[in-house]
Design a binder for these strands. Structure first.
Lengths: 220, 220
DNA sequence: AATTAAATTTAGACAAATCTAAAAATTATT
DNA sequence: AATAATTTTTAGATTTGTCTAAATTTAATT
């Protein structure tokens, strides 16, 4: 199936927002795309009928498996072109994005696979962002320590700093497991404690010590 | 100024048709673009208000100087991308056109000038068609003998076979000069005489001998 | 819990580019 | 020169993507 430039831009924008926010909202997306909330609603209805997004009125949305596949295709094209512009045409680091925004919508699969080969199958673009291969697979961003996570950026718990029963007891009490999605809502300077929000539950705070023992991966 | 993909495609198509026909007509263009005559009329009104075409209702049209400039820009992009696809990405000769049809509408001037430089300022594309430089100039196709001109293909007289007074007298009588635009409407097998049409004048025939002494350049 | 505020959706309109069918103009033919 | 045939244009609709303004729903606050 083939998608319009507008559709591809919406899908790509949702994909990017999903990495930072579990629930993508209408206003957020409208702001990202420099468009109006009403336009977002219209487009989302359309993307829903095409089964590219999960979407329930008034309750945000997220990409379906198929939607993610489309997004990764666009992102692959974008990042390969960025690499080309920077590496071959000697564009400055800060000029590549804008041009790649246009090139990414030229959707010949053969073009992109041959470009990939010509460039030597690069793994990351000039900004260090990973380039999906022709199967849509890419280097996953590695885990970071929870206390280094940006405010309001959603992440998924991927590991613990140690295996002590004390730590595990505390985690159990706070209902934190591997796979738990959370974000930091506030950072208290006084003791570096963090206010944490897990979806569908009230916010609560955790100590600096605990934060330093939790590994998280950025969303997606 | 910036033009839509549709506008660029119309301008490019008119440019191509102008090389073969002095007067581009609605049906001709509709056929070239796989669209309907009514759509052509609509778009031409728009291109006229933008001063890209000369156009009088029911009387055909042609590009203005500005229109030609736009056309040459699109053609430059198209042919540079064709060269890139063929030379760098190893596309087959017959695959490049289709992909270049999309790439040609990415209109960053910097992109194209850098691509040109990267490719070593090629003079012709893989089909042998000349690539305009960043000033819109390109190798002019060289003159051919009038008796080798295709039927109904417009051409411009660019030179004469000799300087004899007899020849010049005949040319004067027939109102043919350097710069005269004409096309061959019919070729008579009996004596290889040619029926010639000059714009706005009745058709007339010339002898094989005369045809062999006239040099013409294909239109544009 | 009721009210206010914020976010989201609907309703209706618009511009770009296209189409079909009918009308008008041009060209060709008798 | 009048009529027939062809070409071109107009009129009115359609699709895509967008907008504003009003209505609705959800979330926040007192």
């Amino acid at each position: 199936m083939n998608f319009s430039v507008a559709e591809e831009n919406y899908i790509k924008a949702i994909w990017h927002l999903q990495r930072y926010h579990d629930d993508v909202t209408t206003n957020l997306l409208a702001n990202q795309l420099h468009t109006r909330p009403a336009s977002v609603t219209d487009m989302l209805k359309k993307l829903k009928t095409k089964k590219l997004v999960h979407y329930e009125k008034y309750h945000g949305f997220s990409l379906t498996t198929e939607g993610k596949k489309i997004a990764l295709g666009v992102i692959r094209r974008h990042r390969l072109w960025e690499f080309f512009l920077s590496e071959k045409l000697k564009f400055d680091w800060d000029e590549v994005h804008e041009v790649a925004e246009d090139l990414e919508h030229v959707s010949s699969k053969k073009l992109i696979d041959k470009l990939d080969e010509y460039l030597g199958f690069p793994k990351v673009d000039p900004h260090g962002d990973p380039i999906p291969d022709n199967q849509g697979k890419m280097e996953t961003s590695s885990s970071i320590c929870l206390d280094q996570l940006e405010l309001n950026r959603s992440a998924e718990v991927s590991g613990v700093g140690n295996q002590s029963t004390e730590l595990l007891e505390l985690l159990k009490h706070k209902n934190i497991r591997i796979g738990t999605k959370l974000e930091i809502k506030k950072r208290f300077e006084f003791d570096n404690s963090l206010e944490i929000k897990i979806r569908n539950t009230p916010a609560f705070t955790i100590s600096e010590q605990l934060a330093k023992n939790l590994l998280v991966k950025h969303g997606k």
